[in-house]
Design a protein around this nucleic acid. Structure first.
Lengths: 187, 187
DNA sequence: GACGTATGTATCAATATGATATATATTATA
DNA sequence: TATAATATATATCATATTGATACATACGTC
């Protein structure tokens, strides 16, 4: 098996929820899904064209007030292709924390700079957490609509992990501040 | 600015710790760093050749018992190049949870299959967590060696997040099992 | 009327993956 | 003691993906 082209499934998945344009797909990835996936325009538009050629989706072009837009809809064939993949076990979760990478090599630049990286990470998480919590609260109200319950799972995941991140940030900063004192004394 | 070529820094970072072969670099990524980064042979070997050409590393070839190996060592220039990057703020942490992706589209295949994905995720985490905890315990003993303290930070991160993952797995399964009952009744 | 932001589609060089090929060394197993 | 499996070691390549950029219209606001 060659390279898997996950984008096929990401796009089909979103189109299984509703008809969308490429632009709207990107917006979903940047909002609802930002916690666990991303894809660039450079992969979205070509993939849409391929999926269409393969009969997994169909398109309908409209001109709204002078601006062209192409909305895509999943076909039965596309739905089956998606399901096949969804039923297969997960191959690999792929995490690339640039923050942790810089931390891991932190000895090269010292505790002060490393603490700054942790601080920046903490601030970003603190900023996003309230929105995640608001999502969970709102989704709770829509509990009876089964489709929303799968979104809920990912939002719950976000809250749990983000809270763990924040706990770690405090621990990590404290741990490094000890070092700063030690190496400060030695100098 | 074009594409950043993070592999440059990953490799230089590892070589800042000690002299290594390409194979050893890959092994580190698969073990110590697996929690937060990965890179393939297909990028490691070409990058080593490029870094050498740019004077960021030097190589020494040896033939040990008929098997060739090329060990790479970081230069002063390489160290400065690495430091420059380490001092810059983090651009973006990139998380691609295939598990969450399949969950998010779970409505297409239903609760039973989705629970299986959660179960598989949980088992993987449960298997790895003890090793992470053992790392933390061992690194605690080496506390006085400052270089190890940065590794410790990432191991601590692993323990905190993995424990959060496990809590979420229980919540998520319970949440979905409710649905199974509901839709079971409706059928 | 000008400026910034949002909607919308598209392309491309640079980068990275995953598979595969090729060899030798070491360890386990029959 | 053969032999199979696994570990060490380097390398290449088709395919996938990013990040940047280009182009154009629409809308809000100062």
């Amino acid at each position: 098996m060659a390279n898997e082209k996950k984008n096929n499934y990401v796009i089909l998945g979103l189109l299984s929820h509703s008809t969308m344009t490429g632009y709207e797909i990107k917006k979903r990835l940047n909002t609802t899904m930002r916690l666990f996936w991303n894809a660039s325009y450079g992969s979205i538009y070509p993939t849409l064209q391929l999926l269409k050629k393969e009969g997994h989706i169909i398109s309908s072009e409209t001109t709204e007030k002078g601006r062209d837009k192409i909305a895509y809809m999943i076909t039965q064939k596309g739905r089956e292709y998606l399901r096949e993949w969804l039923e297969k076990p997960v191959v690999k979760d792929e995490l690339r924390y640039e923050t942790l990478l810089k931390l891991f090599f932190g000895n090269e630049v010292g505790a002060t700079i490393t603490i700054e990286h942790i601080q920046a990470f903490e601030e970003k998480i603190k900023q996003e957490l309230p929105f995640l919590k608001a999502s969970v609260a709102e989704l709770k109200k829509l509990d009876s609509e089964i489709a929303h319950r799968y979104y809920m799972l990912t939002a719950m995941f976000g809250v749990k992990t983000y809270e763990a991140y924040l706990e770690w940030c405090e621990d990590a900063k404290e741990y490094l501040e000890q070092e700063e004192k030690i190496s400060g004394k030695l100098r």
